[in-house]
Design a protein around this nucleic acid. Structure first.
Lengths: 334, 334
DNA sequence: GGGTTCTCCGTAAACGTTTACGGCTACGCC
DNA sequence: GGCGTAGCCGTAAACGTTTACGGAGAACCC
């Protein structure tokens, strides 16, 4: 772990100035002899440039940060996985922030951007407050938000289309003859919870189905919460299908339906959301609305790269198309 | 995105020198008046210290890197998830490298450590070559390896105990009356593949069971490969249990067994390895050997922090205890 | 031979911090 | 009053790069 050589060390050994060393290493025009001398010296010393010093001079860190609630959540895993190669190919490192959906923690990440440890931040806030919007406006580096922000917010934005997604799911259930389609949602003060509540209501309207509050239940976005919410819902009414706001909720619903002796999909069809890796593993395999997590991650990374290349471009909004992946929980017995 | 204020800006506004500003901001003894003036100026300007400049001076980045094959793999997700809070609490950021199990890529990450963009590297190589060992020895910053390295390698090391883990699984199967216990492994030139092959053989010996090569099959560590390997195995012999080298392989095995009309666990019991989030979701729920991914991640982060605090301590080896999580694929019908 | 132009290179400043060093002031003491 | 000491603070150097600037020398042309 010895102190590594610097361009000064190389300069001495090669008998040239540090400016020449820098020029050679950066491929600027230099005489053959100098190039050779520097190359040899650098090789012999095992020189590796110090990225911190370079960053200080260039005010570029070649790092991009991604902040999300919980890296254990398959949706975020899919995003990270998709971002990684895009950033890596462009020579950027990826910094991960898990915020536990803590608003102060998220705001802290935004504020810390001022420390310039990263060139930009991709953030996927689960709740979106006034303070977030202020922080976006004041951010000291480009921000890309995954999840809808109000028009006019000065950030690039990647959106899922919950509306179309839920519409696809409900159309599918309707086509299968289901008419009492329940909805197990996450908290309404979250970005996805709010979006999906609206989307569900709109879809019912468009299908000409009645709005029955008894068919709606809310829990958190985890399996146990989904199970509890489903239990509450079943205690008061009897749906012939359950739309769930994410796959974990859907797994909880499957648990409860099975425990109650209800067959899936014969008695109750179940649809999840996000189409995570869990969906094809569940039993029955889970029909799920793919909101394009990977795609959203990829696009967010691309928006960030574009922004870093041209800081003055207009903020862009990208919407990712949803897709319905039909599996055993609504159709057949796979 | 205006240029942020620096200590020079503050110094001018407060009418003091930059040294005084620095002293105040770092809590070094200073007169009341100066402290107040600087605090006020910093507050008014919305000053945020530049971490790059600080790093250059202190040669500390407060960043730790983690390199693994694929962030999509649940084992690594568990590790990252466990590392994150440990590092965060100590004031370190986490940098993620996905190497796609590409050896050159891994070595590149090790070499790049010389750029000093991170204070240390946690790496979980899936294969371990001579060149890795050389690179560990030459690394310009502390390295913690997850996965066994030969004794004497100058790095801190966190190990899983495949041997005990497989022993637990085979004891369990043996106690259930299974005697023809097949093994679907991953590639033998990988660290886990090799370790588990040895562990399986040892466990058979200790149980006094015959070594039947027909019961062993090798594929890659993914669901489809596990399915293919299981198909090959079933084509030539008939086991009453299948030990699988990870959960994805086990899922593939379940797929094939179901397709062949074999009941799990009545006809063939199945055990996975790693106890990922997929295990409790599968059908039947999957008995799995938990090798403590989260625990390994946490311990690796702790070793790194210790090492950064005291660079001269002896390299340490930590072994994480395995645990068998019994579920429906070996017992009962949950 | 003197001017012009070009190529190559070295000097030095700059990026934003931290910190060693020494100067200044005020105070206490003999 | 002179001296020593303590407290506070400013100057400047340093971290390892990149890069503007200008000087030295060669080559070329008239």
């Amino acid at each position: 772990m010895r102190q590594g050589p610097t361009i000064t060390t190389i300069a001495e050994r090669a008998g040239v100035s540090i400016a020449s060393v820098s020029r050679v290493l950066n491929g600027l025009p230099t005489s053959e002899a100098t190039v050779r001398a520097v190359r040899v010296a650098a090789e012999e010393l095992g020189y590796v440039p110090n990225s911190v010093a370079r960053s200080l001079k260039s005010s570029r860190t070649n790092q991009v940060a991604f902040a999300m609630a919980d890296i254990g959540n398959p949706t975020y895993v899919a995003m990270v996985r998709a971002m990684q190669p895009v950033l890596k190919d462009a020579g950027f490192r990826l910094i991960l922030h898990s915020t536990d959906a803590d608003i102060d923690d998220e705001l802290d990440v935004l504020r810390r951007l001022g420390e310039r440890y990263a060139d930009g931040l991709i953030i996927s806030p689960i709740r979106l407050t006034e303070r977030h919007l202020e922080a976006f406006a004041e951010a000291r580096a480009p921000v890309v938000v995954i999840g809808s922000v109000p028009d006019g917010t000065p950030v690039d934005n990647v959106r899922a289309d919950s509306r179309t997604g839920l519409r696809l799911a409900l159309d599918h259930l309707y086509a299968l003859g289901r008419r009492r389609i329940g909805f197990v949602n996450g908290p309404l003060d979250t970005v996805p919870g709010a979006a999906r509540a609206r989307a569900y209501a709109d879809a019912l309207t468009e299908l000409g189905l009645p709005h029955d509050p008894a068919l709606i239940e809310i829990g958190d976005f985890y399996r146990a919460d989904g199970a509890a919410a489903t239990r509450r819902l079943l205690a008061r009414t009897r749906p012939d299908a359950l739309m769930c706001a994410n796959d974990l909720i859907a797994l909880g619903a499957l648990d409860v339906l099975r425990a109650e002796g209800l067959r899936v999909p014969e008695d109750v069809a179940v649809v999840g959301t996000d189409d995570t890796d869990l969906a094809p593993v569940a039993w029955p395999t889970l029909t799920s609305v793919a909101l394009g997590s990977a795609e959203r991650g990829r696009r967010a990374a691309e928006l960030m790269l574009d922004r870093l290349a041209d800081g003055d471009a207009e903020p862009r909004v990208v919407t990712v198309e949803p897709r319905l992946v039909v599996r055993g929980s609504t159709k057949g017995t796979s």
